[in-house]
Design a protein around this nucleic acid. Sequence first.
RNA 1: GCCCAGAUGGCGGAAUCGGUAGACGCGUCGGACUCAAAAUCCGAUGGUAGCGAUACUGUGAGGGUUCAAGUCCCUCUCUGGGCACCA
Length: 804
Amino acid sequence: MGYDFEAIERKWEKEWEENDTYATNIRDFSKPKFYVLDMFPYPSAVGLHVGHVEGYTATDALSRMKRAQGYNVLHPIGYDAFGLPAEQFAIKNNQNPAIYTDQNIDNFRRQLKRLGFSYDWNREVKTTDPSYYKWTQDIFLRLYEKGLAYEDYRLVNWCPALGTVLANEEVIDGKSERGGFPVERRPMKQWVLKITAYAEKLLDGLNTIDWPASTLTMQKNWIGKSKGTVCIFSVVDHEENIEVFTTRADTLFGCTYVVLAPEHPLVKKLTTKEQEKAVEEYQKIVASKSDLDRTDASKEKTGVFIGSYAINPINGKKVPIYIGDYVLATYGSGAVMAVPCHDQRDYDFAKKHGLEMIQVIEGDVSTAAFEEVGVHINSSFINGMHNEEAKKAITDKLIELNKGRYQINYKLRDWLFSRQRYWGEPIPILHDEEGNTYPVPYQDLPLKLPEMEDYKPTGDGRPPLSKAPKAWLYVNVDGKKLERETNTMPQWAGSSWYYARYIDPHNENAIGEKELLDHWLPVDVYVGGAEHAVLHLLYARFWHKFLHDEGIFKSSEPFQKLFHQGLILGADGQKMSKSAGNAVSPDDVIKEYGADALRFYEMFKGPVDQSMPWSPDGPKGAKTFLDRVYRLYSEDTYKAKWTDEDVKELEYIYNYTIKKCTEDYEILHFNTGLAQIMILVNELYKAEKLPKKILLALAQLLAPVVPHLGQELYTLLNNKGMIEETPWPKVNEAALSNQPVTYAIQVNGKVRDTIDFEKDASEDKIEELKQLALASEKVKNFTEGKTIVKVIVVKNKIVSIVVK
RNA sequence: GCCCAGAUGGCGGAAUCGGUAGACGCGUCGGACUCAAAAUCCGAUGGUAGCGAUACUGUGAGGGUUCAAGUCCCUCUCUGGGCACCA
């Protein structure tokens, strides 16, 4: 049977709703602030899934503990509501995606409230709201004014059959996901944000934030700073030079050819008549390939000779020029010097095309390239030198010859910022017929998305907004007819600054009031999936740093501490999805076991950052435990044992549980904290007397994870008001010391006995312990007749006896 | 292919400044209560051998370092996340 979760949970949810219990007093600077944030959800039609519940429960529990600890907590929620599914729904049903989006949001809100999350509902934001995207557009204009937003031709996935541009996700093996039509990569004029201007700042900032090491590494690798050398190759019979970036200038004497990206601007000029046809055909093939395919080292290296020759600047050697798809136009200078003996890709390419190979570092190159560093050979003046020394010698020589320079290069590319879609923020730019661009004046923001007749793609590659009503599309400024930009922003835009809007969500004159932004930023704890380790988290950092430079944000990083939550997989271990039929809806679980049982299960089942399969019996087990707790507060048998006195035998576990939970919750290790609570509850069941002090603390320690039940237990103890108003329980350290410790006694690494001994024993006592250990019968069985080589004592842990 | 993680009983996991592997829970088995069942309470539970004390074995695979390795080093396998227009 168990407690009536439905009645209890509804009762307290009503109370919280009516009293607006979790509204943040944003101007109360008297208490220390604590800003806990979830990555806001995309409001899909299927509603919240149990994966959301995990991360949201973790932040909710942390928020609740922090409130009880005396912090002024900001814990908001919103919706990342622009996106592809809404647009596709709109196209299919010829309905404004805003309607669909709002329906989904209503459903999300209902679910979030039913889970008892302590969000401040007065601060809800959605990225599709004009009062919100007014500021997204404002930030874009600022970037534009600072020269950080520019137009350029970029390759996009163009599907001629569908007459539309596709997202990478919509392209599978070079074919469109819908219909399986061929997709080609075609250059189109796009808005691009100059994130590369912030490469160094984004890199430096990583040292100042408390993020998982793996995420820091991924961001660092993504930015991809490398120090190297630019070598300038002149071209035989041409004026042009080819610039090549390399981190292995030391191998320049081994360069036997040069490879340009097929899109390299010089290809056309340097291709000879004879090679023209082959080059064009090759370029056409490459156009259908993604970068991923092109850089896959396991695939065959293809390419063609373009007919011209370059001159190796270090030795004057004449080397052929190729184009090859494994060279990307977007990295370095879009050209590489090929050193077959010391780069595997060049090795494969050279073998295939029968090109010359010169070994310049000692090592085995008979079956594969030797990519290590080593002693140089066949390299004129650097023979005998080692890697770094050789790089410097070569680069210095190139500089002297005016054929090179040191250069720092980044893998990071500028951010392709426009989309050929309807359901996104309009880009506030106007164009004239000469190709000039003009910003929409700030006072005209927000530039609202126009209502449209249909949302279908135009078929010719122009964005849907080019079909917008003429009244929207054309503007007269000073007698000049200007046309609006019809591309929209990517979904990343709205999510790059939303954390700041929660602080002052209704401000019509600014992103937020300066004093409030200064006080509340950065976010103290941010929780979201590891799949955002690079893109979202890098884009948001970029905008934050830009707005910092604009004087809007005082802090230089948006998210001080970051945790990732893992995926919750289906019971079959596969990713949950509608099509796999393994998805679990929180609604169903709540109906059967209650929100608290769901929350408890998700926090108890394992570390928040780990992916793990859903266990259908899990919430049931959680409910069983919660019933067990409830009985201590509600059944006469147990109530008869309540006492105002302390029980000495329970003091240690009481204090240890407070300590363990407080520490574990702080770092989101709820599973181990809750395990300790279970141990305490098991002890309470065995106890003769139940100190009310412990029952209160137990309710408090549970309340962050199971807030409805926590509040109910608090009330059953005859308390009035909200449980979080009672300060978080404190640890009496004295009760934790003077506990004896158990030493394990090992002989040759195997445990043979254990001895209880005093904690933190002095040197003399340690000697006593050694003798005690050696005297143990169980130990003697293994030491008898052998020589004792040494005895190692690790304080409070182990006595290790080594015998021969 | 590149970058980043992970692999521990029947299951989820605990233990990582190297120090008693399997905390806690699920499941299973046994007991109490009950006419019976459910619920509840109590207990057992990595594997092998043994009535038992106990012994051996055991943290994806193979090597190595160490008095001591789930933890450190090398090689490998598999799984997951990301790869710039999914969010």
